[in-house]
Design a protein around this nucleic acid. Structure first.
Length: 783
DNA sequence: GTAGGGTTAG
């Protein structure tokens, strides 16, 4: 389950967290929950004491999980000891300090080899290195590498070559040599050293390992010793060559313009006998090398590159959409639109996969050249060859229509996207499209005013793009549109909700200097934010400041403070603010009363809760379901079933409909009274009944509830839910439940399959069903 | 005429 279910999202998270009791904390600490912490949660958690306590103990309990979160954590948490990197004592080389050698043979050998080279204990070394059965070749490369310097490793190589029994010698020598090369490549005069080592390997008939060859190809390539690189590549048996070697080698050949050589490698890789022939590896290697060359690495000669490209296509090796787009973009950048267009056509003609992306690149280029005629032709062509436009294609179209003052046509395209969306088809208008349209409409003669900007800024805030909102704020001033207090409020509130209370306060200060004074709404946003971070001193202070600065609090301002205090359990403060509220001539509404009653109940102050209830009724505010639920929860939790039942009857008599929460409270009570922990069967009964009465929403939240309480759902639970969801046709929720079922390794039975098969095939979602079933095959294997 | 703040119960 997601942490969201427990904590709520964003600002709500902290509010809920404040209520978390000690035993519940431990539940939250399970790595599972920590894994789901979003940046948002982390920010909010790190703002309060409870949050920091949670995070700190989480970091002690679930090291690996938090390790992966490291870059996102609050700075204070970086001090946590286990987050420190491996000790950085200066070892023999980076390889070793990263990967301490705990292999006894390697350690002992290195111990023996520490003696000066002329006094190595040859007998003991031989006993260690050449027993029967012998150590692995990898031991030899590790030992040589552990020596830290190429000259030392070379002496060791000589030792191995002259002492190793005849049969094993070549392999051991090769692996030792590989490490000598590696060490030499890190030393200052590597060019000369590697060349000499390579010559030596040929003289002494040392066969190159793939790793040695890869290193040599890479470094010779870097030093411009192309012929040596070619020969180091060819020294390795073709069946032993791996993807990495090919990739480096091909890249090197292209960089040095060796197209002939590259073609030879291509033939080799595509040979039916090669293990790469049927894979996408040759395509990946060659296209990315071509692309790098096209991007100017080693100078670019489009003819030869395009020629090679066409050759690949002829052979049935195709680039993926992203690579093709990049290639097209590069050709366009060099003014070769015609060539780019031909290339796309050739891929299509040869049966390669082509999506909208490469077309979009060409469309953008044509647009830059104002070549609308060819843009049109291209779009017609796309339709002809059945390539559906994606959101980007439509964005380009709308943008150009707007720019050519054809805003009405642009709006028509927009309409079409929206209605297609309703028909359940692919794409939905995105920010870019809205931006283009807004821009078009603005330039169409109606200038944006402060309200237009406010709407946009608010929009950005509401989707958490505070930085964009701030940019727009700066932009409006530049365009000569003066922000007003509403603009300030939108931004202050946006920053607060994003957890940047400090920024909000700072921003407000700046605005005061500019002559924009805060009003009740500004203060209310800030008060709420401070309540959310448990800073009630500041919240109260702001409340006072507001009155003193001549802007008197309204009822919402009072409600905000009261709700914050209630959630924090500060009921005395909450009560006195409520008294002030009444003194100021306002009255409490039902939500506010519920806040207070709930707060008193959580603090076990039943008398005060009843006082509130009495006051509420006498002032003509009718208790609602939530009011009753607050009380029911209290009696449920304290096991007072008689009163709970009485209350339940009363609420029904008053015409109120009990909810999942009400029943939950009663069940809580029954279980407590009889010492029965709630179990799967009880939940199943309830879930099934709720679904049968079309209260599927309630059933789903009961499911959340059981997960929260650590009661495992079983197949019956899911079956009941799927039945309910099918009745409502809530596909998305059903997919969610299918995932959950998978996660819980809860096996579907014939009932599950019957419901899902019938439903999902009716709505054309057989793919999801297939995935669902596959999930079980996989988990069955791993289990 | 169009924009901004508090929503409670398990």
């Amino acid at each position: 389950m997601e942490l969201n279910c427990v904590l709520g999202r964003g600002p709500l998270a902290l509010k809920n967290l404040k209520r978390v009791s000690q035993p519940e904390e431990s539940k939250l600490l399970r790595p599972h929950f920590v894994k789901h912490l979003s940046l948002h949660h982390l920010l909010f958690l790190s703002l309060s004491d409870t949050g920091m306590r949670l995070l700190r103990s989480a970091s002690e309990q679930s090291k690996p999980v938090l390790h992966s979160l490291k870059p996102r954590l609050h700075p204070a948490l970086h001090l946590s000891p286990f987050l420190r990197p491996f000790s950085a004592d200066p070892g023999p080389g980076p390889e070793l300090s990263r990967q301490p050698n705990d292999d006894p043979i390697v350690a002992q050998a290195l111990g023996l080899l520490q003696a000066p080279e002329n006094s190595w204990n040859a007998a003991e070394l031989s006993r260690l290195l050449f027993p029967s059965p012998p150590p692995t070749p990898a031991h030899f490369s590790k030992i040589a590498l552990g020596l830290g310097a190429s000259d030392k490793a070379l002496k060791f190589l000589e030792f191995v070559q002259s002492n190793s029994p005849r049969d094993d010698a070549p392999v051991f020598v090769s692996h030792t040599f590989q490490s000598v090369v590696k060490l030499a490549s890190r030393e200052p005069s590597w060019e000369k050293a590697l060349l000499e080592l390579y010559k030596m390997s040929r003289q002494r008939d040392i066969r190159l390992t793939v790793n040695a060859s890869t290193l040599l190809v890479s470094f010779f390539g870097r030093a411009g010793m192309v012929d040596e690189a070619v020969s180091a590549f060819e020294d390795v048996d073709r069946n032993a060559r791996d993807g990495e070697l090919y990739e480096l080698y091909v890249g090197m050949l292209f960089r040095h313009g060796r197209f002939e050589g590259a073609l030879k490698v291509l033939d080799e890789m595509l040979d039916p006998g090669s293990r790469f022939a049927a894979s996408n590896i040759p395509g990946k290697i060659f296209f990315s090398a071509l692309l790098r060359r096209l991007q100017g690495e080693g100078g670019s000669d489009a003819d030869e590159i395009v020629g090679f490209f066409l050759k690949l296509i002829e052979l049935g090796v195709f680039p993926d959409s992203v690579t093709l787009s990049k290639i097209i973009k590069n050709l366009c950048r060099n003014g070769e639109i015609g060539r780019a267009w031909d290339l796309v056509l050739r891929v299509i003609q040869s049966g390669g996969p082509v999506e909208a992306a490469p077309f979009n690149v060409i469309l953008v280029e044509l647009g830059k050249r104002l070549d609308f005629k060819r843009m049109n032709e291209l779009m017609i062509k796309m339709k002809e060859i059945n390539i559906p436009p994606d959101i980007v294609t439509l964005g380009i179209l709308i943008n150009h229509l707007c720019k050519s003052r054809r805003v009405d046509d642009a709006l028509e395209v927009f309409e079409r996207i929206c209605t297609k969306q309703e028909e359940g088809l692919s794409c939905k208008p995105d920010t870019v499209i809205y931006n283009c349209l807004i821009d078009g409409l603005c330039k169409d003669g109606c200038k944006p005013n402060v309200i237009t900007y406010n709407c946009l800024i608010d929009g950005y805030c509401k989707c958490c793009e505070i930085d964009k909102a701030r940019q727009l704020f700066d932009q409006m001033s530049e365009e000569g549109v003066q922000p007003n207090v509403v603009t300030v409020n939108i931004l202050v509130d946006g920053m607060c909700k994003f957890g940047r209370v400090g920024h909000a306060v700072e921003f407000l200060k700046e605005m005061k200097v500019r002559g924009l004074s805060p009003n009740v709404r500004t203060y209310t946003s800030l008060i709420k934010a401070f309540c959310n971070v448990n800073n009630f001193e500041k919240a109260m202070e702001l409340f006072g400041e507001m009155s003193r600065s001549g802007c008197s609090p309204d009822s919402v301002a009072y409600y905000t403070l009261i709700s914050g205090l209630c959630n924090a359990g500060r009921m005395d403060d909450a009560s006195s603010v409520a008294t002030e509220l009444k003194a100021a001539g306002f009255s409490l509404d039902v939500v506010c009363y519920n806040n207070l009653i709930g707060g008193f109940c959580r603090k076990n102050k039943l008398e005060e809760a009843y006082e509130m209830l009495k006051e509420m009724e006498s002032s003509g505010v009718k208790p609602d379901t939530v009011t009753y639920n607050c009380l029911l929860s209290y009696f449920g939790k304290t096991g007072n079933l008689t009163t709970a039942n009485k209350l339940m009857r009363q609420m029904i008599e008053k015409g109120l409909v009990p909810t999942v929460v009400s029943y939950g409270a009663l069940i809580h009570g029954y279980c407590l009274k009889n010492n029965i922990p709630p179990n799967t069967v009880i939940y199943n009964i309830l879930i099934e009944c709720l679904c049968r009465n079309d209260k599927v929403d309630g059933a789903c939240s009961l499911m959340d509830d059981m997960m929260e309480k650590g009661v495992r759902p079983n197949t019956t639970t899911f079956n009941a839910l799927f039945k309910g969801l099918r009745q409502m046709n809530w596909l998305k929720k059903a997919f969610e439940m299918m995932d959950r079922m998978n996660e819980h390794a809860c096996k579907p039975d014939y009932v599950t399959m019957e419901i899902l098969t019938e439903w999902l095939s009716a709505v054309g979602e057989v793919g999801k069903l297939k995935n669902f079933v596959q999930g079980y095959e996989v988990s069955a294997c791993t289990a």
